Computed example of a mutant assay.
Amino acid sequence: MKQSESPLLQQTRELRQAIRSNDHTGPTSGLVTGAMQGNVVILPADWANEFLLFCQKNPVSCPLIGVSEIGDYRLPELATDIDIRHDLPEYYVHRNGEMVESRSDIANLWQDDMVVFVLGCSFSFEHALSQAGLAPRNIEENVNVSMYETNIATTPAGRFFGNTVVTMRPYKPKDAIRAIQITTRFPKAHGAPLHFGTPQEIGIHDLSQPDFGEPVTVKDGEIPVFWACGVTPQVAIRNAKPPICITHAPGKMLITDILDTDLAVL
Rank of each mutant, 00 (worst) to 15 (best):
T12C: 07
L259I: 02
A79F: 09
N58I: 10
V40K: 03
A236L: 14
E69L: 03
A236T: 11
T150K: 08
L109Q: 05
S21R: 13
L78V: 03
V165D: 09
T155K: 05
I244E: 01
P242N: 08
A264C: 10
D23M: 13
D260W: 05
G230L: 02
V166W: 05
E50W: 15
I106T: 02
L53R: 13
V143S: 07
K57P: 08
T198C: 11
E201Y: 05
V60N: 02
I244S: 00
G38D: 10
T167D: 04
P224E: 09
H94L: 11
I177Y: 11
G251Y: 00
Q17E: 13
C229D: 01
C229F: 00
L64E: 08
R20P: 15
P136H: 01
G230S: 06
N239D: 10
S4P: 05
T184E: 11
V41N: 11
L8F: 07
I106G: 01
L52C: 02
A135R: 12
R238H: 11
T155E: 14
S146A: 15
V100H: 01
V165C: 15
A35Y: 00
P243R: 00
N96F: 15
S21F: 14
R159N: 06
P243Y: 00
L259A: 10
T247M: 10
G221T: 14
V115Y: 01
F54Y: 14
A135L: 15
H127F: 01
I180L: 09
L129W: 03
G133K: 08
I106A: 03
D23P: 08
M147R: 04
M99E: 09
E201I: 04
G158K: 03
Q111C: 04
V166I: 08
K172C: 04
R16T: 12
V118F: 13
S6K: 07
K241W: 11
I19Y: 09
K219C: 13
K2C: 07
V115R: 00
L88N: 03
S104K: 03
P170A: 12
I177E: 13
I258T: 14
R95T: 02
C62L: 08
N239L: 09
A153G: 04
